[in-house]
């Protein structure tokens, strides 16, 4: 399988990439690591007119500590999150989520910004970023704005990123949570989570439970009112609209969300284990 015929342009740097976005908008599809986009193009589930390869925009690959937030450049590859001492110290939840992505080969190419732009409702790193209350930076040739990661995706594959913008950075507020968990349930051969949960202090976020990653507000409010784990976890799927597909039924996903939230709130020993 090969993608349908495409035009291709390799951006020299961020300035040129933003100029091209302004000139051509949605005619261009940014290509970061390509680990979600290329499979979709090969299967012809997605079509693009022109690929704008951001592989040379190395200025967007960084992790930086900036007092009140940890900044992660959009083109930072997953494997870097597993090895970076700043991530390890300030946002270990992010490293846990990155460890759950695909396999080592995928993590060697896939990027944080690519995952955010792809807006997959089962994505690991965006899930952790929602729980961490992170903010994404969207830049165009004429300006820059910040959007909470929780408000970036509006539907599978659809974000509020405008045709002239690029995802350039994500900012994790500091100090980070005192307590965090990351739990995913996936069929090993399929890689993508059926359901995953990330907990950061009082925030609980779920992946795989609707068209976008979402906060489990029912659980959060129950905990805020002093409810125990069992009562709070029973509200995990409140307001959720999980998909019904070949991989799992709606009822099974709802069940998984309640079980995973209960485990995440009670069992400190259960985290994703993945060697680096």
């Amino acid at each position: 399988m090969i993608p349908a015929s495409v035009h291709y342009h390799r951006a020299r740097d961020l300035t040129e990439a933003l100029e091209l976005r302004q000139a051509y908008g949605d005619q261009l599809r940014p290509l970061a690591g390509g680990q979600s986009l290329l499979p979709a193009l090969k299967l012809r589930r997605d079509r693009v007119d022109t690929l704008l390869d951001l592989g040379r925009v190395t200025e967007l690959s960084y992790v930086a500590y900036r007092d009140d937030h940890l900044a992660v450049g959009a083109l930072t590859r997953y494997h870097r999150l597993l090895d970076d001492p700043l991530v390890d110290r300030h946002a270990p939840l992010l490293a846990m989520a990155a460890a759950a992505v695909g396999d080592r080969q995928v993590r060697h190419l896939g990027t944080v910004g690519g995952a955010l732009a792809q807006a997959d409702p089962a994505a690991d790193v965006p899930l952790a970023l929602v729980a961490l209350n992170a903010v994404v930076v969207l830049r165009s040739a004429t300006g820059v704005r910040q959007v909470p990661v929780a408000e970036l995706a509006v539907a599978p594959g659809v974000t509020v990123c405008r045709p002239d913008e690029l995802v350039t950075e994500v900012r994790v507020p500091l100090p980070g949570p005192a307590r965090w968990r990351y739990l995913t349930f996936a069929r090993p051969a399929l890689e993508w989570s059926l359901v995953a949960v990330a907990v950061a202090d009082s925030r609980v976020a779920l992946a795989g439970m609707g068209p976008t990653i979402r906060r489990a507000y029912g659980v959060e409010s129950a905990l805020a009112q002093g409810a125990g784990v069992a009562v709070a976890a029973a509200r995990a799927d409140e307001g959720c609209d999980p998909p019904d597909d070949a991989r799992a039924s709606v009822a099974y996903r709802r069940h998984l969300s309640r079980v995973l939230v209960a485990r995440a709130l009670t069992d400190p020993g259960t985290t994703v284990e993945e060697p680096r």
């Binding site: 495409v6 035009h7 291709y8 390799r10 000139a23 005619q27 022109t50 704008l52």
Partner: peptide, 8 residues
């Protein structure tokens, strides 16, 4: 009208 090239 169209950026990029079909061969690279």
């Amino acid at each position: 009208a169209r950026p990029g090239t079909t061969t690279v």
